[in-house]
């Protein structure tokens, strides 16, 4: 059984079709890369999965479909594309990451709901989960710094630390590589691999960086309002789909930028 399943997902806004009959399924332990140009509907897809937006079709998480999935949503970690915080907001990095402990409490209370469908989630009793998460993302040095003083890359890592504190079973990341310098990108890349491999977290990640996604993901889905491709990355590479998808010139620019 798939841990995440999207069937005939259609989203209309003001008469326009944003997403058209998307079908996707993600198995446990998978690392799915979602590729698509700006405005392709990647964010909308994620927000629908998380029940933050309305849509037609059916979505199931951990075997719970549609409105039944609300109670298992806390087991999904979500990293939105944009997050900003006032420079003056009085909160330290450590306090920010600690807010996820609220999620953790909810999850340990509701873990039986997952167990009923055969998914195992157990709380790990550690005193310093927050410190550990900060060390994992390499932000331990800034834990007493105020959030508003972080750089773009540090903010991104603080968000990831907050997500991993609750040890979600699925992690959905919306263009996490944007606004990161190459060094920070490489670190995030390693981190995602580690989370997927060592902690067995299923990951769905949207990105523009083709090469990076190809290296990182096990399978690829290409979306531009509708689903153009969904399969292993080998199949994806062998098809001429990417060229059609991004157009030849775009591919060229892309290669020279990142090649």
């Amino acid at each position: 059984m798939s841990i995440l399943e999207v069937k005939d997902l259609t989203v209309r806004r003001n008469g326009n079709i944003i997403l058209d009959r998307i079908n996707l399924s993600v198995d446990e332990g998978e690392l799915l890369g979602i590729l698509g140009p700006n405005g392709a509907g990647k964010t909308t897809l994620f927000r629908c999965i998380l029940a933050l937006e309305e849509c037609e079709g059916s979505i199931s998480l951990f075997g719970y479909s549609n409105s039944k999935r609300l109670k298992v949503l806390p087991f999904v970690g979500y990293l939105p594309q944009r997050f900003s915080i006032d420079t003056n907001f009085p909160i330290t990095v450590k306090e920010f990451v600690s807010t996820a402990l609220t999620t953790l409490r909810y999850m340990s209370k509701n873990a039986y709901v997952l167990k009923a469908k055969g998914y195992e989630w157990s709380i790990i009793h550690e005193d310093n989960v927050v410190d550990k998460a900060l060390d994992t993302v390499g932000l331990g040095y800034a834990k007493h710094r105020r959030m508003g003083l972080l750089s773009g890359g540090e903010l991104q890592r603080a968000l990831i630390a907050r997500v991993i504190v609750s040890r979600p079973l699925i992690l959905i990341l919306d263009e996490p590589f944007n606004a990161l310098d190459p060094d920070a990108q490489a670190k995030l890349y390693e981190l995602l691999r580690m989370l997927n491999k060592d902690m067995n977290i299923t990951i769905v990640v949207a990105a523009h960086d083709l090469m990076l996604l190809m290296r990182l993901a096990k399978s690829i889905a290409c979306i531009n309002k509708r689903l153009y491709f969904h399969g292993s990355k080998e199949e994806c590479l062998s098809s001429d789909l990417l060229v059609r998808f991004y157009s030849e010139s775009a591919m060229h620019i892309h290669m020279s930028e990142h090649g």
Partner: peptide
């Protein structure tokens, strides 16, 4: 205070975490 802080800072994420 922790829940209120979560909602104040990030209402959407707070909702996702079951609050």
């Amino acid at each position: 205070r922790d829940k209120l802080l979560y909602i104040t800072m990030d209402e959407e994420q707070a909702r996702l975490s079951g609050l």
